[in-house]
Write a protein that binds this DNA or RNA. Sequence first.
DNA 1: CACGGGATCGTCT
DNA 2: GACGATCCCGTGT
Length: 204
Amino acid sequence: MHPPTRLPADFYQNDDVVAVARDLLGNYLVTCFDGQVTSGRIVETEAYRAPEDKACHAYGNRRTKRTEVMFSAGGVAYIYLCYGIHHLFNVVTGPEGSAHAVLIRAVEPADNIPLMLERRKMQNLKPQLTAGPGVMSMALGIRTDWTGHDMTAPDSLIWIEDRNGSPNEHGIASGPRIGVGYAGECADWPWRFWIPGSPWVSKG
DNA sequence: CACGGGATCGTCT
DNA sequence: GACGATCCCGTGT
């Protein structure tokens, strides 16, 4: 056993974003803002893959101010505002020049649950603390300001680490992604992954 | 539990 | 000017 460390750049730079989305399950998403660590075990993810995926913001390798960060080498954060309110957190994957990303949709709360409850203005620990991409980001203190942050740097303030919490014999479940009905045939691709039976997975 | 609507703003047409 | 990779609250059953 060794102390947990940040997942390395080559984990993220795998070109197979669907495999990365699966492999992220069971790892811990950690933030350390203002000296305060908060974290959770990743239980639900979705893969988005340019250029062929119509649900991906970089569909057709479209480069805009917003999507430019998705073309970075894997390991940086891609965070955007959804419905004017929610800060949705993704990890860019693949080699530089490809625009793939994994949306982290839900975590099982781990470190510093009191601070996460405070950020969410909640009194008691319930799945709704972190089950869903918008509320998860709020609990971890993640905002769009952090888009482009290199999570593989040794002094990064957002990172993902392996604590030997990988999914066990119950395996991994998959199905269509949430909220992408506009994406034509791509809407049916089973690119959402979750740990079956976990109460911390979003309801969709 | 199923639904329906409002919140709220950056991004792209 | 329209529309979200969402969430929460209200209503009705």
